[in-house]
Design a binder for these strands. Structure first.
Length: 591
DNA sequence: GCTCCATGTCATTAA
DNA sequence: AGTTAATGACATGGA
C-alpha cells in the first residue's frame, strides 16, 4: 500500500548510527563507546556533516508536509477549525468499539505516504540530536495525528503516547520550537519508560477521551503534527516489532502490525535501530483494513488465545453462549439465601459441588491454578511487563473486544517466553484475569457474568424505592433477580458487619478507656481516703490536746484543777459548755 | 501444620 | 410483610 524509502545514508552510516544508539543505551552501564564503535571519530565528523544536510532537507520537507496536511484537512464550519477530511479512519472514530483499528491505522499510513521519506531522515537526526531519549523515540512521537484513536489497537499501540501528545504544546512555530516540543514529548515518554511498563489501559481512556479534542487542533498546527508524527514512525514500530517476533511468528506479527505496535518502546527500541531492514519489509506489507481485520481474527483464533478466557471476560459473548445455563444455575450464595441447602453456604464448596457455573469463584480459581505458577515465573522473567497493576483495573469496564484485543496485543510482549517454548498468551491473560479478580469482588464478577445491567454499587447502595424502581425497569430473569437480591443483601450485610466490628472495636476501646479511667479514679479516691484519714487523726489529736488544755485551765473553789478522770467537758447544741462530773455518770451507770 | 487475625457470609432477631 | 441494621457464629485466606 505504501512504500517506505530507506534512509538516505549508506550502510556504513547506518551501522555507525546503530552502534551509536547501542552505546547510548548502554552508557549508563558504564560501557565505553569504543566497545561498540571502533571508528567513532570518523563517525562524528560524518554525523555532523549529515546533520547539517538533514536539517536543510527537513525544513524543506516540513513545508511540504504542511501543504500536504492542509490539503488533507477541511474547514469545520462549526468550529472554524481544520479537521481531517472524512475518511474511513474518521468513520472509525465514531465507532470506536466496533471499527477495527487497523483501518484507521492504515489510512494514516496512506495519508502520510509522502512524508515517509523525510521521516527517516528525521529519525536519524533525532537520534543524533537527542541521544539519551532514543529508546523513547521509537515510541513517543509515533502517533500520526490523523489516526483516529478509536480502536483498542491504536491505543495499545501507543500506551503512553497519546496523553503525552495531548500534553505537548502543539503550537505552530519555527522548527526549533517544533523540535523542542518533540523533545519535550520524548522526555515525557522517557519518564514513562523509566517508570516501568506503561500500561495500555490508562492510555486508552485518555486517548479516547482526548482525541476528539486533539483532532481540531490539527488545523492550527499542521506543520507540527506532521513533523511530530509522521507515518514513518508508525512504520518504524512495525519494523521494531517484527524484529522482536521470532521467525516462526513473524508472519502473523507482520499481519497484525497494528496490534503489535502496542509494544512499549522500551522493549525493543534497541532492536528498532538494529533492524532497519525488517522495518522496511514490514512497511511494505499490505495493511488495508480488511486485511488487518483478518489478522485480528487470526490472532483471536489462536488456540492459545481463544478459549474460555475471552469468553469469561466478555459478558456479551457469554450471554450468547449459555444464557440458559446461567439462568438455571444461579449463584450458590443466592441459592443459600433462597432456601437452598445449607451445605451451599460456602460459595466455593457449592461451586465445587456442581462446578458448572462460569461465574463461580471456584471456577475462576480453577482456571487460574494451572498456568498460575508458570505465570508468576513469567512475571519474574519480565517484571516490567507486570509493573502496572492499577491501570489494568480499568479493564474491568472495557468492552470484551478491547479486552480480547489487549490480550492479543500482549502476546508479542511475551515473545521471549515463546522463544523459550512457552505459549505466553494464556499466561498474560490469566495474569490479567487474576489481577482483575483480585480487585473485583465476587459479586461484581457474578453480576458481570450474569450481565446484570447495573453496577454492584447501585445494587447495594440505592434506596429501596429506587432499587425497586430500577428492578422494575429491567426485565431480569430469576437468576439475575436472585443474584441482585443476594448482592444487595451481602453488600449491605458486609457493610453492616464492618460497622458492627468497628462499633465493637470502638466499644472495646471505650470500655478499656473507661476501665482505665475507673482505675485512676479508684486510685485517686484511695489516696483521698488515706489523706482524709490522716487528717482526721490529726484533728482528733488536736482536739484532744485542746480539750486537755481547756480542762487544765478549769479550777474549783479551792483553786485546785479538775481531774479529767472525774470530770468531762460536754457541749450542748446551743454551744454552751458544761463540766460534767464523771463520777456521777458512773454512779448513774452503776445504778 | 498450627495459630492468629481480618474479612466475608449466613442466620437470626429486633426495629 | 418487607426491609434494614445489628450481631453471633462460621468459613476462609493470609501472615
Amino acid at each position: 500500500m505504501m512504500e517506505i524509502e530507506l534512509p538516505k545514508m549508506n550502510p556504513s552510516q547506518q551501522d555507525m548510527d546503530l552502534i551509536d544508539i547501542l552505546w547510548r543505551q548502554d552508557i549508563d552501564l558504564g560501557a565505553g563507546r569504543e566497545v561498540f564503535d571502533f571508528s567513532y571519530r570518523q563517525k562524528e565528523v560524518q554525523l555532523q556533516r549529515q546533520r547539517e544536510l538533514e536539517e536543510e532537507k527537513r525544513q524543506q520537507r516540513v513545508r511540504e508536509q504542511e501543504k500536504a496536511l492542509l490539503a488533507q484537512l477541511q474547514l469545520d464550519e462549526e468550529t472554524g477549525e481544520f479537521v481531517p477530511r472524512p475518511t474511513p479512519a474518521n468513520n472509525a472514530l465514531t465507532h470506536a468499539n466496533t471499527a477495527p483499528a487497523e483501518i484507521t491505522q492504515n489510512v494514516a499510513f496512506t495519508e502520510e505516504d509522502g512524508d515517509a521519506m523525510s521521516f527517516d531522515e528525521c529519525m536519524q537526526l533525532l537520534a543524533e540530536t537527542f541521544p539519551l531519549v532514543e529508546s523513547a523515540e521509537s515510541a513517543a512521537p509515533c502517533l500520526d495525528p490523523s489516526v483516529p484513536p478509536s480502536t483498542d489497537n491504536s491505543h495499545v499501540m501507543m500506551p503512553g503516547e497519546m496523553p503525552m501528545l495531548t500534553q505537548t504544546p502543539l503550537m505552530p512555530g519555527p522548527m526549533n520550537q517544533t523540535w523542542m516540543d518533540l523533545q519535550h514529548c520524548l522526555n515525557i515518554q522517557e519518564m514513562l519508560d523509566m517508570s516501568g511498563y506503561v500500561n495500555p489501559a490508562p492510555a486508552t481512556s485518555i486517548q479516547e477521551s482526548n482525541y476528539s479534542q486533539y483532532l481540531p487542533e490539527l488545523g492550527d498546527i499542521p506543520t507540527n503534527t506532521a513533523e511530530m508524527c509522521p507515518p514513518a514512525y508508525i512504520n518504524t514500530f512495525e519494523g521494531a516489532f517484527n524484529s522482536v517476533v521470532p521467525p516462526s511468528l513473524n508472519q502473523i506479527s507482520l499481519k497484525a502490525e497494528d496490534i503489535n505496535e502496542g509494544f512499549e518502546s522500551d522493549d525493543f527500541s534497541d532492536i528498532f535501530y538494529s533492524d532497519m531492514e525488517a522495518k522496511v519489509n514490514s512497511a511494505t506489507l499490505p495493511c488495508d483494513g480488511a486485511n488487518t481485520v483478518d489478522q485480528l481474527e487470526e490472532l483471536s483464533s489462536d488456540p492459545l488465545l481463544k478459549p474460555m478466557d475471552l469468553h469469561s471476560l466478555s459478558p456479551g459473548d457469554f450471554n450468547v453462549g449459555k444464557p440458559e445455563a446461567m439462568a438455571e444455575f444461579p449463584d450458590s450464595d443466592s441459592g443459600l439465601s433462597l432456601d437452598a441447602s445449607p451445605k451451599m453456604s460456602s460459595p466455593e464448596k457449592s461451586l465445587n459441588g456442581d462446578g458448572s457455573f462460569g461465574f463461580s469463584d471456584s471456577d475462576m480459581d480453577d482456571t487460574e491454578d494451572g498456568p498460575g505458577s508458570a505465570e508468576s515465573d513469567y512475571a519474574e522473567m519480565f517484571p516490567l511487563l507486570f509493573q502496572s497493576d492499577s491501570p489494568q483495573q480499568s479493564l474491568t469496564e472495557k468492552s470484551p473486544v478491547s479486552q480480547s484485543q489487549e490480550s492479543a496485543i500482549e502476546q508479542p510482549k511475551s515473545e521471549p517466553a515463546e522463544a523459550s517454548g512457552f505459549s505466553t498468551p494464556p499466561f498474560t491473560k490469566d495474569k490479567q484475569k487474576r489481577r482483575l479478580e483480585a480487585r473485583i469482588s465476587r459479586d461484581e464478577h457474578r453480576a458481570k457474568t450474569l450481565q446484570i445491567p447495573f453496577t454492584v454499587d447501585m445494587i447495594i447502595n440505592l434506596p429501596v424505592d429506587d432499587f425497586n424502581e430500577l428492578m422494575s425497569k429491567h426485565q431480569l430473569n430469576e437468576a439475575q433477580l436472585a443474584l441482585v437480591r443476594d448482592i444487595r443483601r451481602r453488600g449491605k450485610n458486609k457493610v453492616a458487619a464492618q460497622n458492627c466490628r468497628k462499633r465493637k472495636m470502638e466499644n472495646i476501646v471505650g470500655l478499656e478507656y473507661e476501665l482505665d479511667s475507673l482505675k485512676e479514679e479508684k486510685e485517686r479516691l484511695m489516696k483521698e481516703k488515706s489523706k482524709n484519714s490522716k487528717s482526721l487523726r490529726e484533728m482528733k489529736q488536736q482536739l484532744n490536746s485542746l480539750y486537755l488544755e481547756v480542762f487544765s485551765m478549769l479550777k474549783d473553789e479551792q483553786g485546785k484543777p479538775y481531774s479529767p478522770n472525774d470530770y468531762s467537758l460536754q457541749q450542748t447544741s446551743d454551744g454552751s459548755v458544761f463540766l460534767v462530773p464523771r463520777i456521777k455518770k458512773t454512779l448513774i451507770k452503776s445504778n
